Simulated assay, not measured.
Amino acid sequence: MDNPLRWFEIPTTDLDRATAFYEAAFATTLRRESCGGNPMAIFPYTCPHPGGALVAMPQLAPRDNGTLIYLDGGDDLNAVLARIPAAGGTVVMAKTDLGKGIGHIGLFIDSEGNRVGVYSPN
């Protein structure tokens, strides 16, 4: 196994609101699709890299204490973290150095109430 991550899903109760949040916070465009009758907004990715999506499924609920994923924060995640409040989220951990040249992380609560991380090498 070269990389255990293949796909992730971030639950949402309002896909339009969540899509607008992530597009604003990450300065990107998500692709809208439906899978099995469930609407989703897919983050940009290229194969063979892992991908993921925002999903609106009745059996999934946003939460701030479940599995934690870290999204790509770019070269300096301060740019993403700075856009979080205006997009409708809350930064709960500012850019934090992991030490030993590993990189930096930050945490935020998205528009749906999910706790999500960001990572950058710088």
Rank of each mutant, 00 (worst) to 15 (best):
I109P: 02
A79W: 09
G66L: 10
A18S: 10
T67N: 13
R63Y: 07
V118T: 11
H49Y: 13
I42L: 05
L68E: 11
M93P: 03
L81R: 03
L15H: 09
F21L: 03
D110C: 11
L15K: 06
S111N: 10
K100E: 12
W7P: 04
R115Y: 07
L71N: 10
Y119P: 02
A79K: 12
N78R: 13
R63V: 10
D72L: 07
D75M: 11
G37D: 10
T13L: 04
A94I: 07
N65T: 14
I109H: 12
A27V: 03
G37E: 14
T29S: 05
I42Y: 03
M93A: 13
L81Q: 05
G73I: 07
D2S: 13
K95T: 02
R115P: 02
Y119N: 03
N122V: 06
D64M: 09
N65Q: 14
G117F: 05
G74F: 11
V92I: 15
P58R: 14
E23A: 00
G73C: 07
A27M: 07
S120V: 02
F8D: 04
P58A: 12
G73S: 08
P4A: 13
P121Y: 15
R83A: 11
V91H: 06
T19K: 02
N65G: 07
A79M: 10
D14K: 08
G89S: 06
H104Y: 15
D14V: 05
P39F: 06
E23V: 00
E23F: 00
C35R: 14
G106K: 05
E33I: 04
H49C: 11
G37T: 09
Y22L: 01
E33D: 11
C35L: 12
R31T: 12
D76M: 07
G99L: 03
A27Y: 00
A82D: 13
E112R: 11
A86E: 15
D97A: 02
C35S: 14
A25M: 03
R17W: 02
A20V: 05
I84G: 01
A18Y: 00
P44C: 09
L71S: 12
A87R: 10
P121L: 13
P48V: 15
L60Y: 08
D64L: 07
Y22Q: 00
A56H: 13
M40Q: 11
S120C: 10
F21M: 01
G117V: 08
A18T: 04
D16I: 03
M57G: 06
V92Y: 07
I84T: 03
G101Y: 07
D72N: 15
P48A: 12
I84Y: 00
T96I: 03
Y70C: 08
L68A: 13
L54H: 02
I105D: 06
A61E: 06
L60Q: 04
L54N: 01
P58W: 08
G89Q: 01
V118R: 04
A27E: 04
K95W: 01
P121A: 14
E23I: 00
N65V: 11
G66N: 10
A25V: 01
Q59Y: 13
N78M: 02
L77C: 11
N122G: 11
D97E: 07
L5A: 11
T96H: 09
D64C: 09
Y22I: 01
P58K: 14
F108T: 04
G52R: 06
E112K: 09
S111D: 08
I105C: 03
E33K: 09
P44A: 05
G51E: 04
R115G: 02
H49G: 09
M1P: 07
R63T: 15
G113F: 09
D64N: 15
P4N: 13
L81S: 01
